[in-house]
Amino acid sequence: MTTEEGRILDVIERYEFKYLVPERLVPAIRDAVRGICKRDRYGDADGVYRIRSLYLDTGGFDLYWANDREQRDRFKVRVRSYPGKTSPVFLEVKRRVQDVIVKSRAVTPAAGWQELLARGRPAALEKLAPNARKGAEKFLSAVHRHDLRPVMLIDYEREAYESTIDTYARLTFDRKIVCQRRDTLDLEAPARGWRPVDHPVQTATHEPVCVLELKFERRPPPWMAALVRRLELVRRSFSKYCYGVNAQLTLPETRAARFEGGLRP
């Protein structure tokens, strides 16, 4: 497993359009892209795999607030893994400037990423390949400059398809999105500690939905534009991290205590 894009690059620049679509529409979307897209090669027989990310933030949740307010220039810092697969860990800085997504990342051994994040461990950087080292330095620079610390684990299933006629175009469905507080550099978590993120109560929808993402370079392919028009899809901002923080705040016993007053606008 490399990445959800199926390739390892230092920097990815693209557009991501998100939609909350009812599960009842998913079969129609699959049918619409049949013949244009193929299932992601890293998924199971249904093109599905799991993604787990550890998000970092400041003590005042500044990155959360920047995303919640949809600031024009904002970023997220996360450690990404693929549970159930033999895969490295990815250190990612995902920046959004208006509609453009610029993501830099470093590929690190699954057994050594915690050592890399420890302050004053330059020896760990030297173990990385030159291209991975550059991404790791950018990641660590953001962590140290903003004094970031582990905050939240987000876990979900992704059903992914990639275009066979475009240089780069992907369509993904994300569902079974859950979150769990995490204040240590650890991607493991107790099974009973997860809190739903895409529940209708959280998404303010009247029926179960999934997150549809259309990813492309420069401009949407004609088949994507036709799909959006035909099904009358409406773009909606959906940050899994922000929804995860909000989901945790709805727990009656943790509304204030668990975040220790950190979520102040």
Rank of each mutant, 00 (worst) to 15 (best):
E232W: 07
V97Q: 13
K18W: 03
E70T: 04
L116Q: 02
S141E: 05
F139A: 01
D62N: 01
T205D: 09
I29H: 03
F61H: 15
E232M: 13
A132D: 00
A123I: 09
R39N: 08
S104D: 00
L125H: 00
A247C: 04
L54E: 01
P130S: 01
L128G: 00
P88W: 12
D46I: 14
E213N: 06
R119N: 12
V21Y: 05
E207D: 15
T167C: 08
I12T: 13
R170P: 00
C242Q: 03
R236L: 09
P252T: 02
K127N: 09
L91Y: 00
Y156S: 01
L56R: 13
K103W: 05
C242L: 10
G135F: 00
L233F: 08
K38F: 15
A28K: 03
V178W: 13
A124E: 06
E92S: 09
A256E: 12
M1F: 02
R145T: 04
E207I: 04
R158W: 11
A256C: 09
K94C: 14
F216C: 07
K240T: 05
V26Y: 03
G120E: 08
R175W: 12
R175I: 04
D10T: 03
R119D: 08
T167H: 12
R192H: 15
P88K: 12
R30Q: 04
L153V: 03
Y49F: 06
E70A: 10
L214E: 02
W113R: 05
H199A: 09
S81H: 09
Y55W: 06
P122D: 05
A256D: 14
F75R: 06
K138C: 07
R158P: 15
L249I: 05
R52K: 06
G60D: 06
I36D: 14
V228R: 11
T205H: 05
C37Y: 15
C210S: 05
L56K: 01
R14W: 15
S141K: 08
L227M: 01
M152H: 10
E4V: 15
G6V: 08
E23M: 11
G262A: 07
G262D: 11
K38E: 13
A123E: 12
H199C: 09
V234T: 11
P196I: 10
V143K: 09
E16D: 10
P220D: 13
R192N: 01
P221L: 05
P208W: 02
V100H: 14
R149C: 11
R105Y: 00
L249T: 04
K85V: 12
R7H: 03
L171I: 11
V107Y: 11
L153D: 00
V48G: 09
V234F: 09
V178R: 10
I165V: 06
D73H: 15
Y161S: 14
Y241V: 05
P130K: 02
G262C: 07
E92C: 01
V178A: 10
D10Y: 00
E126R: 15
N131S: 12
K127F: 15
V26I: 13
P22T: 10
E162L: 06
Y15V: 10
V228T: 05
G60E: 12
V33D: 02
D99F: 00
L187K: 07
E16R: 12
Y243A: 11
F61S: 05
A124Q: 06
A118R: 09
R219V: 15
A111C: 13
Q98W: 06
V26A: 01
I51Y: 00
G193P: 09
A226E: 11
Q202F: 03
A189M: 10
V178I: 13
Y168H: 07
